[in-house]
Design a protein around this nucleic acid. Structure first.
Lengths: 316, 316
DNA sequence: CTGAAAGCGCTAACAT
DNA sequence: ATGTTAGCGCTTTCAG
């Protein structure tokens, strides 16, 4: 017992036995067994993180923000990837909960009711991230995707673009951006000239293919809005390969503001999403709730993407 | 006890009590506690996977190969990201082991001795992946990076290229490819005209910047070998931005054969690494070792990357 | 400040 | 086929 105490709370143990235990532990190469600790405490130091994908660079960056924030707290992140499959998401969350994590960070607000119930009944802090347009189970950190789309559309309209096309791999948050974008267009009496969507996973290859198609069908477009930067880059490549001038003939607009956008040989506009900050904040919320016995009130943090028009010039 | 039995091994329990238990479990929404099970069994259903990075698309693909293979086995992958930091790698492995995983998949063969000792003493199957050039602790699945570099150099030499430059974010496996490449050059009495390396993390942005530098310093290069596809794409972008013709003026050569290479508006050569297959095989090795009480003999699986010259034409 | 007792939820081994 | 006992390694509680 004295040993157990020495190894975590130096107070309550005489300096003598404390040092004795430390020395012995080191000599024996003692490593605590978190299974036993968690079983006894009915809680672990795990913090579960559920994201839909790893191939979209946004999520690794969120994870990295989380890792950064919990550094030194003794908490340990555990990742789950749903591949945008609600069924799989349910299973992953269910079994993460069975390890009694200290908290859960889940991507998005649009879980099916069964999953929401699971989260609600778990007696640990839950933080939903990346989205604000919906009804959080507990805490929430993200941006309004609707507003992001709307704001970007307004900025482009203000620059004089008029003939918009949309190219997207439509996940639920991209759809909200699309809705916002469409809303802003409607306010100006406009609508998309053409839309090309699929529910396949977003990628540069997909972006390129769909862009080739849409350009063929609608040669009058002056601005293409994409579901994210990967799709947009693919679209840019399609234009470059066909000798279509960017942004003079067609402007390319993505979402996320990933680093690689800076490397591209063509200009494109994007909204820089605060994904690292989202990770930081989500982790901070859980850390703040660590000691509390009563579950503190839910908190929602609204962050705002920064629009980067990437030197797209005003249309005449 | 009958309940416990009913929930995992239907045999050894009367049909009657079995169904009774199942019904009750369902009614109560019973979920087993893996903490207790693992504590009792001194082993969990976790399978730890340690990769250096998530921002390089190769690793998500390896993970996906692992996930694919363990689907339905009841095993559950747990990921750790080292950020290429041996210190962090040690900590992560150490604490993964404390959860008594069924096996560990670790990237690379070049762990420091302290880490190797940790792995050796863990009484579970260990699979080191992605590399073959070195001394595995237990099982090993990967490619020879040295050979990959050497083979690519030979293919390029055969095509008539003579003035090579190297641009790399040098991690340990990229360095082995570089060594192999250099070895092949030497066999032809050649060496790199110019090399540009850094230990920063690879990215398109970095590839672009370093390429701009090397082109300025060595305008006579006819072929640029990069540490991977991201760097190579950045290099391609640098050339395109400067109006340097690819592959006529300079050929671009990457490594990995990631999907996005197909989307690029310029041709580039690459070695297609079998990363999904590596994930599959690594997981299969651990699954095969699940029941065994004696640790079966170590197995090494050699896979081979496929060279894709990307329609780089023969130089005159 | 230290230790003895009991229990976290489960399972292997041994009765019955 | 089922139940009993003991123990996985740790912590909380309560006595000393």
């Amino acid at each position: 017992m004295t040993a157990s105490r020495s190894l975590r709370s130096p107070q309550g143990v005489s300096k003598q036995s404390y040092e004795c235990v430390q020395k012995a532990a080191r000599a024996l190469g003692y490593v605590g067994n978190p299974l036993a600790t968690s079983l006894s405490n009915r809680a672990s130091d795990l913090i579960g993180v559920i994201v839909p994908s790893m191939t979209n660079a946004v999520f690794p960056e969120v994870l990295s923000g989380i890792a950064e924030e919990i550094e030194g707290t003794g908490l340990q992140p555990v990742f789950g990837v749903t591949e945008y499959d609600p069924e799989r998401e349910y299973r992953i969350i269910r079994q993460m909960l069975s390890w009694r994590p200290a908290g859960l960070i889940v991507t998005g607000l649009d879980q099916p009711e069964e999953t929401r119930a699971l989260l609600r009944d778990a007696d640990i802090p839950i933080v939903q991230i990346m989205d604000l347009d919906g009804d959080p189970v507990d805490c929430c950190v993200g941006i309004s995707n609707f507003d992001a789309g709307k704001t970007m559309a307004e900025a482009l309209l203000e620059r004089g673009f008029r003939a918009f096309g949309y190219v997207g791999a439509v996940d639920v948050r991209a759809r909200k951006r699309l809705d916002g974008f469409r809303y802003a267009l409607a306010e100006h009496g406009l609508e998309f000239v053409s839309e090309k969507t699929t529910d396949a996973a977003s990628s540069m290859v997909l972006g390129r293919r769909l862009t080739e198609e849409i350009l063929l069908e609608s040669p009058t477009l002056d601005c293409l809005y994409f579901s994210n930067d990967d799709m947009a880059a693919g679209g840019g490549f399609a234009c470059m390969a066909q000798g279509i001038s960017i942004p003079d003939a067609v402007a390319i607009v993505g979402f996320n503001g990933l680093e690689f956008v800076q490397a591209l040989p063509c200009r494109m506009a994007t909204s820089v999403s605060p994904r690292r900050g989202i990770g930081n904040r989500a982790a901070a919320l859980i850390i703040a709730r660590l000691g509390e016995k009563e579950r503190p009130p839910a908190e929602t943090t609204r962050l705002t993407p920064r629009i980067d028009l990437g030197a797209i010039l005003r249309k005449e």
